[in-house]
């Protein structure tokens, strides 16, 4: 139904959505991210791979300032979204997170109805003028989350009653509902079974038509399947960043090669 991800996309023609320069992250005294430069382009999927504890999730959480919620975390360097520094004092993280949505490792639907889960973002950001408007946003988001057919008859049932894969697609739909420009996904399939994983991966590929998607994964196959560009992190350093095909077939750095061939990680 869709092309293999690597082909048919002109990687360099896309505009740069997020550019990070010299990013350092500290957790108290621990230096978690060391001088990372990366450019994330619009309308494509960028994957962050690397062994556990390499800092890929930490870096992802810098992109929508989720790290602000951790007291001991300190971020240095520049991260620009459409040319604007998101760590600038004038930037309100709340507005930023509406533009840069996030999907988490474990599906975390709120203990509310499916409808209210989706409507939560639009409500707090005031995206709907009236009830009909909101209904429309909810339906559109659930369709984009590829879960509309499964839940349209029970929109007012609790979201926690869905299966794991459905819950994760609900969470993606919830993130989409606020009309973000970038979607960050932190190992979105790690808690799912293979069938649910396939469904979510398929969804990710569709989402790239509208959004810039960044996905953290520890599964190299998944990175190869869904992403156009891949960044390899190791011990807080960005070791290699390039086209996914390039990274997997012909890595430049020996560490990348070791990881891909299974010698480290």
């Amino acid at each position: 139904m869709y092309d293999t991800p690597k082909s048919g996309v002109d990687v360099d023609a896309r505009e740069v959505k997020i550019s990070a320069r010299g990013v350092q992250v500290f957790y108290g005294d621990t230096h978690a991210i060391k001088d990372v430069d990366v450019e994330i382009q619009d309308k494509m999927v960028t994957a962050f791979i690397g062994p556990s504890g390499c800092g890929k999730s930490t870096f992802l959480r810098c992109l929508n300032r989720m790290n602000d919620t951790i007291d001991i975390c300190r971020v240095e360097g520049n991260i620009n979204l459409d040319g604007e520094n998101i760590y600038d004092a004038k930037v309100d993280p709340v507005q930023l997170r509406a533009k840069v949505g996030m999907v988490f490792q474990k599906p975390n639907p709120f203990p509310k109805s499916i409808y209210d889960n989706i409507a939560y973002g639009p409500r707090i950001h005031g995206l709907a003028k009236n009830k009909a408007d909101l209904d429309e946003i909810v339906e559109k988001s659930l369709r984009r989350g590829a879960i509309w057919d499964e839940v349209k008859d029970r929109l007012h049932a609790p979201g926690t009653g869905l299966s794991g894969g459905q819950q994760q697609r609900l969470c993606i739909a919830r993130a989409v509902a606020t009309e973000p420009e970038v979607l960050l996904m932190d190992e979105p399939c790690s808690a799912l079974d293979p069938i649910a994983t396939a469904q979510v991966e398929e969804l990710i590929d569709e989402l790239r038509g509208n959004y810039s998607v960044v996905i953290v994964t520890h599964s190299m196959q998944q990175a190869a399947r869904v992403s156009q560009k891949t960044a390899f992190f190791h011990l807080g350093n960005l070791v290699e960043f390039g086209e996914t095909g390039q990274i997997f077939t012909n890595p430049e750095d020996p560490r990348t090669e070791s990881y891909i061939t299974g010698r480290i990680g």
Partner: peptide, 24 residues
Amino acid sequence: AMRDGSLGLGATKSETIKQVILPA
């Protein structure tokens, strides 16, 4: 995870508390 989910959608802390945490 509930807090992260809500903050990740761009909710403020008080919105998260009032609409997600307290109901839960």
